[in-house]
Design a protein around this nucleic acid. Sequence first.
DNA 1: CACACGGATTTGATCGATCAAAATTGTGAG
DNA 2: CTCACAATTTTGATCGATCAAATCCGTGTG
Lengths: 361, 361
Amino acid sequence: MSRPTLASLASELAVSRQTISNVLNAPHRVKPATRERVQAAIAAAGYRPSAAARQLRTQRSMNLGMRLLPATDGINGAILDRFLHALTEAAQSAGYRLTLFCAESDEEEIRQYEQLLDVAGLDGFILTSSTPDDARTRWLHARGTAFAVFGRPWDSAGQPVAADHPWVDVDGAAGTEGSVKMLLAQGHTRIGFLGWHTGSPVGNDRRLGWKRAMSAAGYGQDLVTLNVEAEDTVAGGAAGTAVLASRGATAMVCSSDSLALGAMGQLRESRPGAFLRGGGPAGPDGQAAVVGFDDTPVAAALGLSSVAQPVEEAARHVIRVLTHELDGSGASLLSRGEGPERQLLLAPRVVERIPLPLAAP
Amino acid sequence: MSRPTLASLASELAVSRQTISNVLNAPHRVKPATRERVQAAIAAAGYRPSAAARQLRTQRSMNLGMRLLPATDGINGAILDRFLHALTEAAQSAGYRLTLFCAESDEEEIRQYEQLLDVAGLDGFILTSSTPDDARTRWLHARGTAFAVFGRPWDSAGQPVAADHPWVDVDGAAGTEGSVKMLLAQGHTRIGFLGWHTGSPVGNDRRLGWKRAMSAAGYGQDLVTLNVEAEDTVAGGAAGTAVLASRGATAMVCSSDSLALGAMGQLRESRPGAFLRGGGPAGPDGQAAVVGFDDTPVAAALGLSSVAQPVEEAARHVIRVLTHELDGSGASLLSRGEGPERQLLLAPRVVERIPLPLAAP
DNA sequence: CACACGGATTTGATCGATCAAAATTGTGAG
DNA sequence: CTCACAATTTTGATCGATCAAATCCGTGTG
C-alpha cells in the first residue's frame, strides 16, 4: 500500500524502470503503444516521481528561494502580498516550488544563499529589491547561480547602470510623470513633489518623472520651490504638505501612499473642507489634489489617487525569465535568441479616484 | 573543487563515512578525540550534508508547507506579512524550511497537500485559517500528516469544538471585551458593535466579547439596539456607523480596521468635528470613539485604537508545536507529556491611541 | 542469407546520505 | 593469559530516481 516507485510500477507493468522514466522525461524515445500503456498505469497508480531522488541524481531541486524582508511600514509593504502570491502561483505553474527564508542583512542573505545552495540545492533566487552596487548580485553572478531581480541595478552613486543579469522593474518616473499629467489635465499648474531624501535611487527616479513632466509643461522654474523631501511616514507627509501649501502648491505628487495619506489629512484639517470643497490652496475646480504611489489598499479605501505598480505582471515575468534561464540552458540550441526579455521596465498605471466623502449618503 | 561529501571527507580524514555521519547525528557514539578531529575537518571543509540525499534515506524533508491564500482586502490582510515573516524565521531556526503554494479552493488545497507530500515529501503543513467543519484538517488527520492550524476548530454550526490536532488562536472575544472596557473607562456607556454577518465564526467570537463586557457592565438591555452588521469594507463601516449613531451610540467596537476606518470617516464627516472636538453623538469628554481590530498599519498611521493580535507569537507557537510533533516522535519516551501546549488561545492587546490631528502642528 | 543499422528497451552504475549489522578495539574479570 | 562484553568504527545495502552504455529487435541491403 505504500507509494509506488519507478521500480514497483516497472515490475507490475513488466517493463524496465528506465522505460517509465523515459515516458516521463523523453517520451519520443518510447514506442507510442508502450508509452500509452505506461501513461495509463502511471495515472491509475497515481505515481509521482520523488523530487528527492530526482534531485540527488540530476542536481536540480526545482526549488527557488526568496528572502522575506523584515516587514517594513506595512502601508507600502502591503504590495508584497500581491507580489508573493503571483510569484508563488507563477512558480507553481512552471513546475517550481518557492522556498522562503529570512536574513537580517544583505551579508547574511549571502550566507543563506550559500547554505541553501549546498543543503537544499536551490536552483535559483529571486531578489525583491536592488541596492546601489549590490553585493548580492555580484556574489550570485560570481558563483554562477541563476537569479532574477525585481528592481533595476544601480551603481554606487545611485544611478541606473547596465548589468547583464535578468531584472524587472517598474518605471517609477513614468508613474509620477503620469500623475503630473493627470493633474495638469485637471487644470492644476502648481504641482508639488513630496518625496524621500535623495539617497534613495527609487525615490530619485520618482522625483525625476515629476521634474520631466513639469519641465515639459513649461513649469520648470518651479522645480526647486515645489520639491520637498520628507520622512516616509504619515506625519512626514503632513509636515511636507504644510510646506508645499505655504509655497502655493494646489496639488502634489507623492513618493508613497504614506506620504499621500499625510498630505490628505493635512489638507483636510489645516484648511477644513479645502480638500473636498475648495478654499485655501486649491486647484481650478476649487479642490486640492493628492496622488500617492503604490496603490495600496489604504489608497483604494480612502479614494486616494495613486500610481499602481503591475506587481503581478512583474512577478510573472521574474519567474518567466528565471525559469527560462534554468530550463533553457539545455535547449539553448533550439531557442537561442528567443525567450523573454531579460531586462524589462514595466509601465505603471495612474489610478484616478474621487476622494471618498467618508460619510454614508 | 566541488562540494565535499561524506565520502570525500571520509577519505581525507581516513575514517569511514558512517563515523562522520555519527558525529553529526549521534555524537555520543563517537570517541571524543575523533569527534573533535572530525568536527574540525567539517568546519574547515565547509561540509554540509545534502538534504536530498538525507531525505531520500530518511524520508524526511525538513520542509513545511503553507498555502498562500488569495490576497484579501489588504487592509486586514496586512497582518499576513507579519505572520509569514515570523513563521519563516521560527521555522528556519528550528532547522526547517518553508515552502509556499497556492490553491483556489480548499479542495484544491487538499490536492496540493497530496502532491507535495508525494513529490516533495513535505513533513507538515501550516493552515492559516480554519473553516467550520474543516475538510482539510480531516484529510490531514486521516492521512496521518502533521499539521498545525492558526485558528480554532469550529463545528458545522460555527461553534467552537474540541479537536485533537494542534492549533493556536487569538481570543477575539477577549479583545473586544478589552475594547469595551477601555471605552467604559473613558466614560462611554452607549457602546455599539459594528461587525460582520453572523455566518463568520471569527466575527461571532468578536461580537461575543462585546456582549459579555456590556452585560457585565449592566448595559445588557442595549445588546440588540447597538449591534449592527455590515459588509467588511470602509463603505460598510460608514453605513453601519450612521445607523449606530442614529441609535445614540457614542462609541463603537468594530470587527476590523476596515470597518473602523469607515466609522472614523463617517463620524468626521457627517457631524463635522464630532470625532475630534465633540458635538453630535459623543462621549462624556465630548469625543466619539472607535476601536478597530487587527491593529493594521493603517490604524497606526491614523491613530486609530485597535486590538492587536500577537501574530508573531502565534507563528512561533505554531512552529513550536509542529516541530515538536515532528522531532518529538522519536524522543517521545523521554519527553512524554512535556512539550508545548498543543492548543493555545492567546490574549490580544488593546492598543489605545489618540486620534491623529491629521495636520502638522 | 548474413549483416549493418537505427529505434526501442534494458542493465548496471551512480547521486550522497543513513540504517543495520558486522568487525575491530579496548577493558576488566576470572 | 584468555574470554566475555562494551565501546568504537567499518562495511554493505538501501532510499528512488537518471545517466551512460549495452542489448535486443525488426528492416532494408548487398
